[in-house]
């Protein structure tokens, strides 16, 4: 059931991106262009927040989600250099292309070389950073632990992803 729900959410997400106009890079670049500003992205974010904000608020009363054991809340609260530097790099790539990760993956369906190449490069970089993060935490856990097993790996994965939204 969990997987059916996830699949449905993926369908809804892509439908929302395509309906909203966010799969057109020109619209996104228009939002980022202060000299010829296109407000569409503001309405997209506003519309989404109109639903997510009350949902997150009222879900606090629930002890667990309907189909799983626990809510996975991003636990990190500290604003660090890594967060700001990452967001700055992402912003630069976003401005260069008009594509953020959602529309980039959806655009693969056009089978256009430039768009597929963008998505592939993006995914390879996401995987590379995640792999390096988990390895680094795993090494430091292994140097402390007396016994290394699957739990150590899971702990490393948890620790490597504390700042993940």
């Amino acid at each position: 059931m969990k997987h059916v729900a996830a699949l449905l959410c993926g369908v809804l997400f892509a439908a929302g991106l395509m309906v909203s106009g966010m799969t057109d890079p020109a619209r996104v670049v228009g939002f980022l262009d202060v000299q010829a500003w296109d407000p569409t992205l503001m309405f997209v974010m506003g519309g989404a927040l109109l639903v997510t904000t009350p949902t997150f608020f009222f879900a606090k009363r629930q002890t667990q989600p309907v189909l799983d054991a626990a809510f996975r809340v991003p636990v990190k609260t500290e604003v660090d250099r890594r967060l700001v530097a990452g967001a700055a790099l992402f912003g630069a790539g976003w401005g260069l292309s008009g594509l953020c990760p959602g529309p980039a993956l959806v655009s693969v369906a056009t089978a256009r070389l430039e768009l597929v190449a963008f998505a592939l490069t993006m995914v390879v970089c996401l995987f590379a950073v995640r792999t390096a993060d988990v390895r680094r935490v795993l090494r430091s856990l292994e140097s402390k632990a007396t016994r290394v097993d699957g739990d150590t790996h899971e702990a490393a994965l948890r620790e490597a992803t504390v700042g993940d939204e």
């Binding site: 969990k2 729900a5 996830a6 449905l8 959410c9 993926g10 809804l12 997400f13 439908a15 929302g16 991106l17 395509m18 309906v19 909203s20 106009g21 966010m22 569409t40 992205l41 503001m42 309405f43 997209v44 974010m45 506003g46 519309g47 989404a48 927040l49 109109l50 639903v51 997510t52 949902t55 997150f56 879900a59 629930q62 989600p65 309907v66 189909l67 799983d68 809510f71």
Partner: peptide, 19 residues
């Protein structure tokens, strides 16, 4: 944009409430 945003919000809300 608003309509698409609401759909994206619905997706995020369902993924949170269900999973």
């Amino acid at each position: 944009g608003l309509l698409g945003g609401l759909l994206i919000g619905l997706s995020a809300a369902l993924l949170w409430l269900l999973n």
